[in-house]
Design a protein around this nucleic acid. Structure first.
Ligand code: ATP
Length: 743
DNA sequence: TATGTGTTCTTTTTT
DNA sequence: AGAACACATA
């Protein structure tokens, strides 16, 4: 037996790894080694028990987590371990592509993203002339139904469907629209995969047999349909291993049902349950803050993390008067820690609740010449120009993809506006065929009121030419698209030269990625590339090694960093305004809990009094979570400095440019960095015995030398000493935070 | 039909 | 701030 696998595991972790047969639940707090146990268990199965990799399935939640797991497994098992590691959606898509015909689809089906799905709803609403319901309302409801495993038919028959016949009707129409376009939305991948397996026992049998050992990471965030799929696949061998933490459930808004994990032992009666409380990741101060914070949630099962590490600096609180200063402070601290404490870029993460809050920081970091990557939020593939090119590719791969058709039919402009599309659309509904097929028919029709006939012929010709190139290298198809459509010229029309240039560069980058995809992947078909873009969109990473991470909290779930900044911790931002309005702050608190437990050594929690958001300056109070973290005697674990009082700030705010004392020149920026460096360098509190400082006493300041106190003003922690130095004259200091001693 | 201009609305988190 | 939409004009 390879003992290496067990080194670096605690006795209880080892016991869990050895427990390979039957259902197992590991319910444990952040940083307790759940993912580590999961990966080691797989290694144990493969190396010691000789289970072939293709009999093992590991499901993760986000693409980041998948990459992380694949990497860890490759380290232990080598690159050619054939273990299946996928997200739920990717896993379902693989199965569906194999057996699409069984449920009336073709293997090359498109995957509609949120935008495509919204637009389909919009079209349906327009056709039906519905104005008493909002699209978002219906879309949400339908998505929720799907996440509970309801198909349109079952929804129609359910209480909700009976009470809302018009919604049920829209649900059916929506699914018809998708089917006609040979497309599925994200939720459909799950629902259809489940239906496929449930209705075709022979197919299900194959997968049930194949996956002898099934693992699910972050199980607290599974929704009903995901739980059902897992249950179904695990039916035969019942070797289902799930790990999770109810305090880290942050996807309730996407249908996550915490009961899946809490009732696991009731569903699987023979399940073994393990709990881990030891945290191996973070310093005691960070753990204290995390425990203090999460205690404020009432709907939870008591559990306290116990730090296994035994030293560490305090958690730092940063307060800034606006978002720009916040960005500046964080940048300065990063400089300082790199310079003075030998941290690397990759050691840092700046986490935010909403992706836009990272913008100001991103700009400052870029100006400072630090390389970085951005996770979460606006993705590279969501840029308009990329989506446009992608839509051409989609139409080549699946000519029935109506969303793609509508996107490209008049882009670049070719004289096929609303009237032409309406005409084609009429043929499509009448004959029950896709828009592209309808366009092909329209091109041959002699209809007087169809003025765009010539243009339609041309468009159909263009698409046929592209489709004939379907099996050549993707980069060539993209080139061909750009050439035939005069894409570049169109880009140059609407906007400034610079904008057009960046956009074109983005497309060239996209082309490069397509090339790399084909070099890297076994299945290098166009279909596979398009799917990888919609299902596992990589961010445009400037560098993956040696760069700091700016990310949403959601996108770094399961990851860890030596130094973490949680920025924009303000009421209305983190917790979000919506959660406050709906009185659903507990999930936000769990998001914060996830954020701070990413930190290994150093944690900074930051808020800005003023923030530029949604086109205007907004004022926010510091997040309630900040005070919760340092509540009850943990003052020791938490220090504060900097910043002015909120109300004071509200009255006197000046010009944005000057706010962080820096107008764009590198010299000034560095001056600023140095100034703040001085502050952050020093421990925050120097003098506990403030009362001993009295007028007339002599002091020694660490930088200015000896002097005499000539005046004391202020109260308690804010007490200020005015000191006269023989050479330097008079200076004022906040006693508590000044590096000086009494003589 | 294209294009310009003005208006209103929406602002979380991911697959 | 930015998108998405609506309406008027070329
Ligand atoms: N027995 C151990 N001894 C030393 N370090 C450990 C041990 N177990 C886990 N660790 C370390 O603790 C950290 C957290 O482990 P891991 O990521 O597996 O935790 P987790 O429970 O999945 O966390 P989270 O729930 O926050 O994602 C890792 O750096 C890991 O290497």
């Amino acid at each position: 037996m390879d003992q290496d696998i067990f080194s670096g595991l605690s006795p209880i972790q080892k016991e869990i790894v050895m427990c390979t047969e039957g259902p197992v639940l590991v319910l444990a707090g952040a940083g307790s080694g759940k993912t580590r146990v999961l990966t080691h268990r797989i290694a144990h199965l493969v190396q010691n028990l000789r289970v072939p990799g293709y009999n093992i399935l590991a499901i993760t939640f986000t693409n980041k987590a998948t990459n992380e797991m694949v990497e860890r497994l490759e380290k232990m098992l080598g690159p050619d371990n054939s273990v299946w590691v996928y997200t739920f959606h990717k896993f379902c898509s693989i199965i569906l592509r194999k057996h699409a015909e069984k449920i009336g689809f073709k293997a090359g089906f498109s995957i509609y993203d949120d935008d495509d799905s919204k637009k389909l709803f919009k079209r349906i609403f327009k056709n039906q002339g519905i104005d008493y319901l909002t699209e978002d309302e219906v879309r949400n409801e339908i998505s929720n139904a799907k996440q509970k495993g309801l198909t349109a038919e079952r929804y129609t028959a359910s209480i909700d469907g009976i009470n809302n016949p018009e919604k049920a009707d829209l649900f059916r129409k929506y699914q018809e629209g998708l089917l006609q376009a040979n497309a599925m939305d994200y939720d459909d991948l799950l629902v259809n995969a489940f239906e496929l397996l449930n209705n075709n026992p022979d197919i299900a049998e194959y997968y049930k047999n194949k996956f002898k050992y099934i693992h699910v990471d972050e199980f607290q965030d599974t929704n009903k349909i995901q739980n059902d799929i897992t249950k179904l696949i695990a039916e035969k061998w019942k070797n289902l291993f799930v790990v999770g933490d109810d305090d880290q459930c942050i996807y309730k808004w996407r249908g996550a049902e915490i009961e899946n994990i809490l009732c696991f032992d009731q569903v699987y009666k023979e399940a073994k349950t393990f709990k881990l409380q030891e945290n191996y990741r973070s310093t005691p101060n960070i753990i204290t803050s995390a425990n203090n914070l999460i205690k404020n949630n009432s709907e939870r099962h008591e559990k306290e993390l116990v730090a296994q590490r035994n030293s560490g600096v305090r958690v730092e609180y940063l307060n800034s008067f606006n978002d720009l200063q916040e960005a500046q402070q964080i940048t300065s601290i990063i400089y300082s820690l790199k310079y003075n404490n030998n941290y690397q870029n990759s050691d840092f993460a700046i986490l935010v609740r909403e992706a836009i809050a990272g913008n100001a920081i991103e700009n400052r970091i870029r100006e400072a010449g630090i390389s970085y990557r951005v996770l979460g939020g606006y993705k590279f593939y969501e840029r308009k120009e990329i989506l446009d090119v992608l839509a051409y590719l989609r139409l080549v791969s699946n000519p029935e993809d109506n969303a793609a058709f509508l996107r490209v039919v008049n882009y670049p402009k070719r004289g096929m506006g609303g009237a032409a599309v309406d005409f084609i659309s009429g043929i499509s509904t009448e004959k029950g065929i896709s828009l592209f097929e309808a366009a092909c028919i329209a091109a041959d029709l002699d209809e007087v009121k169809f003025r765009a006939k010539a243009q339609t012929i041309e468009f159909v010709e263009l698409m046929r030419k592209l489709i004939s190139k379907k099996n050549t290298a993707i980069e060539c198809i993209i080139r061909y698209i750009l050439e035939l459509t005069c894409f570049k010229e169109e880009l140059e029309k609407g906007q400034t030269k610079e904008e057009a240039e960046t956009r074109y560069e983005n497309i060239l980058f996209f082309e490069k990625q397509a090339k790399q995809f084909q070099l890297k992947n076994k299945d290098s078909s166009l279909d596979a590339f398009i799917e990888s873009v919609t299902l596992a969109p990589e961010t445009k990473e400037i560098e993956s090694e040696g760069c700091i991470t700016i990310s949403t909290v959601h996108a770094v779930k399961g990851l860890e960093f030596p130094v973490v900044f949680v920025a924009a911790c303000e009421e209305g931002v983190f917790p979000s305004q919506q959660s406050i309005n709906k009185e659903e702050v507990e999930e936000e608190r769990r998001v914060m809990y996830v954020a701070i437990t990413r930190a290994k050594d150093r944690l900074y929690v930051s808020n800005a009094n003023r923030r530029f958001r949604y086109g205007k300056d907004e004022f926010h109070y510091p997040s309630r979570f900040i005070s919760e973290m340092k509540a009850d005697g943990s003052r020791q674990a938490f220090s504060e400095f900097g910043g002015r009082k909120f109300e004071e700030e509200r009255i006197s705010f000046s010009d944005r440019e000057d706010d962080y004392g820096y107008n764009g020149s590198v010299e000034k920026a560095n001056e600023c960095v140095n100034a703040i460096k001085q502050i952050i360098h020093a421990p925050s509190v120097y003098n506990e015995s403030i009362e001993d400082y009295k007028t007339g006493k002599r002091i020694k300041h660490s930088r200015y030398g000896e002097g005499v106190i000539i005046l004391i003003t202020g109260e308690e922690d804010d007490k200020v000493a005015t000191v006269e130095f023989p050479d330097l004259g008079i200076k004022k200091f906040v006693i508590k935070n000044t590096p000086m001693t009494l003589l």
